[in-house]
Design a protein around this nucleic acid. Structure first.
Lengths: 94, 94
DNA sequence: ATTACTATGTATAAACA
DNA sequence: TTGTTTATACATAGTAA
């Protein structure tokens, strides 16, 4: 999206990579905010730059998102493998 | 981006909201992937729809992202409040 | 490291299949 | 509802400051 079409591969030049990172990071954060508002969704976005710096956005709070994520993954586990909800002893004697 | 300009506020009509959610969710996931590749960044994106369904993307793994996030936040704490790295007892007698 | 410009590529709103 | 179409709005690559 710009003066020329680009191929999606790692940008070798570190200055260009940094500039692109800044621009696209702003863009994706904007998109994340819009999605949360327009669609009434809870959104959490974590980005570590190649230099290791953390950037984050959460429509609620990151703690809320991560906690909810953990609970949702547990539920997925239960759906995928219903027996796992039984305690170890219960399974032994099932 | 489309036939008409829109205001960023919750979409009342639930069918429209769902359609917009699908389209924009695809869009933001694509952006997240591109950012990770182009800029050599580690990216984690978690989205809960208004119906509570989880959608996720991580350039590495979500566990890696969340763990790294936790460590980065700890570091931020230490930078913001250097004394907190001292143990409680040490602080008492500082 | 940001910011500005702007031509061009992309995402998507609305409509409809 | 789930996918096309397409006109339009938006994001951004290249560049310079």
């Amino acid at each position: 999206m710009g003066r020329g079409k680009i191929v999606i591969r790692r940008i070798d030049n570190s200055t260009s990579r940094q500039v692109t990172f800044s621009k696209r990071r702003n863009g994706i954060f904007k998109k994340a905010k819009e999605l949360g508002i327009l669609c009434d969704a809870e959104v959490g976005l974590v980005i570590f730059s190649s230099t290791g710096r953390l950037y984050e956005y959460a429509s609620s709070s990151m703690k809320s998102v991560i906690d909810r994520y953990g609970r949702a993954k547990e539920e997925q586990q239960l759906v995928a493998n219903p027996n796992s909800e039984l305690k170890y002893e219960a399974k032994l004697f099932k």
